[in-house]
Design a protein around this nucleic acid. Structure first.
Lengths: 163, 163
DNA sequence: ATCGTAACTATGATAATCATAGTGACAAGT
DNA sequence: ACTTGTCACTATGATTATCATAGTTACGAT
């Protein structure tokens, strides 16, 4: 593709993360990293992506500070990829993607009745299901339940784009 | 690009949503839709995407049942695009992307001290910040706080890929 | 009759992706 | 010693998505 426009020059937080996350390969690699896969070949095999794509994305992710490359042996040199704190914090995004897919991307009893992936909160034992709740009152949160207030800078930017 | 491998033949919910969401243009258009923009030109102008890209993605989104096209006048024919329930339910994903970017994608006081985008829960008045909490106990949720349990079908699929 | 607007489609250059094959370093097996 | 195997990639060439720009259709307003 031609040089794509840079999204990082926006004040919009969704635009900023879309620059990195709006990419199939990145999402798939991240998923594997969260699943605990750390080795190049394991990631390539599970995602089905070609080695040069995996290589390019891993380099990008490293540049962005989302993964770090660590040697686990010297002869021959072998390294593994791990999520940094910034990378681990992307969990919420993958979690939300999973939630949406669980609710909409499967037909009837395709998964055998339950969810494709269950998550239990270790601390309290709750099966968190696919819900997103308000940190204040605990009620489910959806589009329309929240009132968004863009910062002045973001508001100005959008007004400028509208011409 | 060459025909990309189809991701919808996986039991992994992240893979299924990555098929649609792993695309910069889709993410940007979705953001605009959530911001209330419904007209073709408004979306093209704000996202900075070319008209044929917007057109192609809107068609895709419609095919996926995420947006619907509705006429708002007849002479000349004009239509607008709206999120369906399936589309509105993607809010959680964009919300999570925003949260991550707010925490990691801005330098010091780039936004003037606060968040680029504040969200208030209409029902209880809470400023939800960028947190994700457990629906059971209300504690913050991050990677490591949850124990994941893949369904048998997903587990089998991953074992097969590992060879 | 011309101008403007909305929602696109057409065209051609550029660049990202895919599949397949190949490389370099080493370890283990025969 | 020689072949086979594993890991982490890089190289190559075909295909196709994306971009920028221009053009189209339908209509309303001046």
């Amino acid at each position: 593709m031609p040089r794509r426009t840079d999204l990082s020059d926006t004040y919009c937080p969704v635009g900023r993360s879309a620059e990195l996350l709006g990419d199939r390969a990145v999402l798939l690699i991240l998923r594997d990293l969260f699943f605990g896969r750390r080795r190049f070949e394991a990631i390539a095999a599970n995602t089905g992506l070609g080695p040069q794509l995996v290589s390019a994305r891993l380099k990008l992710l490293e540049k962005e500070g989302v993964v770090e490359r660590q040697a686990y042996q010297d002869k021959p040199p072998r390294h593994e990829y791990r999520l940094t704190d910034k990378g681990k914090d992307l969990f919420g995004v993958l979690y939300a993607m999973r939630g949406w897919a669980e609710r909409w991307a499967y037909v009837d009893g395709e998964t055998g009745g339950g969810l494709a992936m269950r998550y239990i909160h270790r601390a309290c034992g709750t099966d968190v299901g696919t819900a997103m709740v308000c940190p204040g009152c605990g009620a489910p949160l959806g589009y329309g339940d929240l009132k968004g207030e863009p910062s002045p800078a973001l508001k100005a930017e959008q007004a400028a784009r509208a011409g």
